[in-house]
Amino acid sequence: MITSRLPSAALTTAALLSFAFAGQAIAATAHESFTSPADSVASDGFNNLTAGRITAAQLTAGLVANVDGSAGDTIFRKMSGGAYPASAGLYQFSGAGSTFEMAVADAADGLTSIVFQSYINISRGANGVDGLFETGYEPRLSYNNGTQFLTASLVETENLSYTDFFTGQVVASDPNNPNHATFTWNLAALAITVPVDSFRITFGTDTHSQTEAFQLDQLVAAPVPEPETWALMLGGLGLITMSARRRITKG
């Protein structure tokens, strides 16, 4: 996982408060299905969102990441609905779906893309549960305190086996359950030409969705060497070649 940015003291304190249990901060590892995108400079992970780790009040107030090595830039909160921390993650038994927000007040300098990964078990078959694929619930991006609500420029899904919320039994991969979803906002592809200083991603989940984990990554373009750097590199390669030739000639 990318760990190139360190959380501020204030966010570190918030993390200890948000994910405290019996007086101890509880860290988690990233969800096994998640990957670390190339060029990520800040990665925040939210895993094991269970009743043993967080409360409904903390979920509404806002949580910072609990995954080891997280940057600590992202605040995750429930905005509306009845989803609550259950024994295996966030769950909602009845009523209208719930809405959530991932907010970053101080985005990475030179931000070029944002990648949001989710692991939510749903059933788009007989049960008719759509999770964040429900119409109007799909993740949307707003930036610089605006209300743009942009859909992702790229959406990728996987149908992975999972442990059933109620029975504890492993359920085989099902094409009706795209539980691992990755949403990417490429700022250039979305014609965003101004620097993005802050942003938020809003999304929703359907009833009976089993929400286990999230990860948010901020990406910047790899630096392009300056002409002077290229010249030094080429000069160094030339010296190495000349030295090698001399050794061969002497040999």
Rank of each mutant, 00 (worst) to 15 (best):
T60R: 13
F34G: 06
G131V: 01
N47H: 11
S118V: 14
L59Q: 00
I75A: 02
M79C: 09
T99V: 12
L90F: 00
G110T: 01
D130K: 02
N127R: 15
G69N: 10
S113T: 11
V129T: 12
T50H: 08
R77N: 10
V104S: 01
P139Q: 09
L59D: 01
A88W: 13
Q117K: 07
T112D: 13
P85F: 06
D109N: 13
G136F: 04
I122Y: 07
N47Q: 14
D44C: 10
A105F: 10
N145Q: 15
G82P: 00
A96I: 11
M102R: 06
D68W: 08
S87E: 15
D106P: 00
M79N: 14
E101H: 09
G95V: 04
G89C: 03
S142K: 03
L63R: 03
G110S: 11
T35R: 14
L132N: 14
S80H: 02
N127A: 15
V67F: 11
T74E: 13
A96Y: 03
D109L: 10
G136K: 02
Q92V: 05
S142V: 07
Q117R: 14
I54F: 04
D73N: 14
Y119T: 10
R140W: 07
L111D: 07
S113V: 03
A105W: 05
P37S: 12
M102E: 09
